[in-house]
Simulated scan of single mutants.
Amino acid sequence: MSDPIRSMCKSLRLAYVAEIYETIPFESPSQYLEAIFNEEFSLREKAKVQRLIKNAKFLDAKNLSNYEWNERIRFPAQIDKEALMSLDFIKQQQNVVLIGSPGTGKTHLATGLGRKACEMGHEVRFFRVSHLIEQLEQALKQDKLPSFRKKFEKVDLIILDEMGYLPFSKEGSELLFQLIAEWYEQKSLIITSNLEFSQWNRIFIDSRLTAALVDRLIHHAHVLTYSGGSYRLSNALSKAK
């Protein structure tokens, strides 16, 4: 392709036409234009999904296609597996809370749902809760808390992984509460925890703050519970035999 045509593609923001025009079969002018534009749209969509996945900052590449659903996962009455995977809860600014022992597959499901949300065009962010607390405390010390919170304005789904694995300071608890309070009925959250709600006082020092936080989280939430012990451990032991 000549430089002038490449320049025009750039001006028209046709990011891929210059690279693919020779690969499109030509049967007629209208067919060719339709085919090349369809390919442009398709490649743009793929690039967008990859950008969303990169911005989400998942810790691994786990997805729903290799998730092992089993009878140990107890769904609430108002939602089932298919409804959960439809991600309608995001459109309704509802939350999903996954509670169970470590190693039972909660993070895998949360990541898989988050990755599918990216594929559907949603802005997603993934955090280990302890890391989010660290970032909040650092932003506060540097007087950058407003700008840090502003980063979530266009985010549709926030995944908070491992709530309860580490206790928080009073300051960290308050900062997290303020953030979740801002997201209430504005964003969807997926939270994984090894503790039942009645045990969250172990990580949040203030019992009144804990009660207010839980109240906001479960008001529009689907709570899934995992019974049994660690799947990772049992799987490792079975392979060792």
Rank of each mutant, 00 (worst) to 15 (best):
I133M: 06
N95P: 03
E34Q: 11
I205K: 13
E39G: 03
L209I: 14
Q178K: 13
V155C: 07
E185A: 01
M1R: 06
R72W: 01
L136T: 07
I205G: 09
Y165Q: 10
A110I: 03
S7Q: 15
L136E: 09
L109R: 06
E68Q: 13
R115I: 12
E134T: 14
Q135L: 08
S238T: 15
S238C: 10
S238W: 08
I53F: 04
L237V: 04
E22D: 09
K239A: 07
S101Q: 11
E71H: 07
T111D: 05
F127V: 06
S173L: 09
E119C: 05
R13C: 08
S7L: 14
C118I: 08
S42D: 03
I190L: 12
L145M: 13
E68P: 05
Y231R: 13
T192M: 13
L209W: 09
F37G: 05
Q199T: 08
V129M: 01
A56T: 00
T192F: 10
Y21G: 02
L209V: 11
T210S: 09
H222S: 10
Y226S: 06
Q178H: 14
L195N: 08
D143M: 11
F89K: 03
E137N: 00
K91E: 12
R128P: 11
E45I: 10
V155Y: 00
F127E: 03
S173K: 12
R149K: 14
E45V: 12
Q31N: 12
R125P: 04
A18E: 15
D206M: 11
S238D: 14
Q138E: 14
I5R: 04
F37R: 09
Q138H: 13
W200H: 00
K187M: 09
D60G: 10
R125G: 05
V223L: 01
K57S: 09
L113Y: 04
E45G: 12
K144T: 06
I79V: 07
D215R: 13
Q94H: 11
K154A: 11
K144R: 11
G164D: 05
T192K: 10
